[in-house]
């Protein structure tokens, strides 16, 4: 990415989606119903041993908006991600995508229904080329059937079509020069980009990104951010887990805060950052602990709070 490119993207203020929930500002409480929810989850619980990792009474994700899921380490964000995408099974609860229940639906079917996720620890398929990684994302491929696979003429045309689409996406994500390289040779940030581009090959409705910025250098962060904003302008819905408060404030339309498995606050970024429960969740969880690892977050949080006052 060129320097000027970066500058324009930094200065450009993303257009925020507003008026997502039912009611006024005073109704921005945990579990508030949304005007047009894409995901509706109720009473989701998951325990590991004696620990209640997730205990969410009600959560709705607004359609065509960027929702951030934040919270201190161990708040249950990733567990909730796994539950919503079928990678883990909750003890209780029901949840639906576009009104269709996802309870008991295996992960691969959830993805086929248009809800595609990425992982906190990037899962680029190392010993495959970048292009093969991309092509794997395309849905309904004839050549993925055992018997059809043997006869190339049955899938050659489709293969060309999805290759073209993959090239377009790689171009956008600035990975096209690396298309024939093994994914293992990519840098951490490039792998994040690849994983996101690969998820888009599925033509998802809802993209769920688990810490898309973790371990990504600042230059690439800017590019990743602009891609996430692009998803919204293309009509997709984004739900992402993030620790970086600046970024959340910058791009999120809606913020859901989790602590100790529960949703403790939700609302637009400005409102949420002022919320006492959020401050407690972030600062309170660090009382008496070594702040070394999380100092950045705490400092950012403090700065944000100062900004708001």
């Amino acid at each position: 990415m060129s320097n000027s490119d970066m500058q324009t993207k930094t200065t450009a203020k993303p257009v925020k989606a507003t008026d997502l929930h039912v009611g006024g500002p005073e109704d921005m409480l945990p579990g508030v119903p949304k005007r047009d929810p894409i995901v509706v989850a109720t009473n989701i619980t998951r325990t590991f041993g004696g620990l209640k990792a997730v205990d969410v009474e009600s959560l709705q994700i607004p359609r065509n908006a960027i929702t951030a899921l934040i919270g201190p380490n161990g708040a249950g964000k990733t567990t909730l991600f796994n539950l919503l995408t079928g990678f883990d099974k909750p003890d209780t609860g029901d949840w639906a995508l576009n009104g269709k229940s996802l309870k008991g639906v295996p992960a691969f079917k959830v993805a086929r229904m248009g809800q595609v996720r990425t992982f906190q620890l990037t899962k680029a398929l190392g010993m495959m080329t970048v292009m093969d990684n991309m092509l794997l994302g395309a849905q309904n491929q004839t050549g993925e059937g055992f018997f059809q696979a043997i006869i190339p003429s049955m899938w050659r045309k489709q293969e060309d079509d999805i290759t073209e689409r993959a090239l377009d996406l790689l171009e956008r994500f600035k990975l096209v020069k690396l298309k024939d390289d093994y994914a293992a040779s990519l840098s951490g940030g490039q792998r994040k980009l690849l994983e996101m581009a690969r998820a888009l090959m599925c033509r998802p409705e809802l993209v769920m990104l688990d810490e898309p910025m973790a371990g990504v250098n600042p230059a690439l962060t800017q590019s990743l951010l602009s891609h996430i904003i692009d998803l919204k302008s293309e009509g997709m819905t984004v739900l992402f887990v993030e620790h970086d408060m600046q970024m959340v404030k910058h791009i999120a339309d809606w913020v859901v805060v989790m602590a100790e498995g529960r949703v403790v606050a939700e609302g637009d970024p400005k409102t949420v950052m002022r919320n006492q429960a959020v401050i407690d969740a972030y600062l309170g969880s660090n009382h008496g602990k070594d702040l070394g690892t999380d100092t950045d977050t705490v400092n950012t949080m403090k700065e944000l709070l100062d900004d708001q006052r």
Partner: peptide, 16 residues
Amino acid sequence: KGIREDEDAVRALGKN
């Protein structure tokens, strides 16, 4: 081959 590399990633892309 994707399954060999990481089966969860392949599952997340809608493959059985």
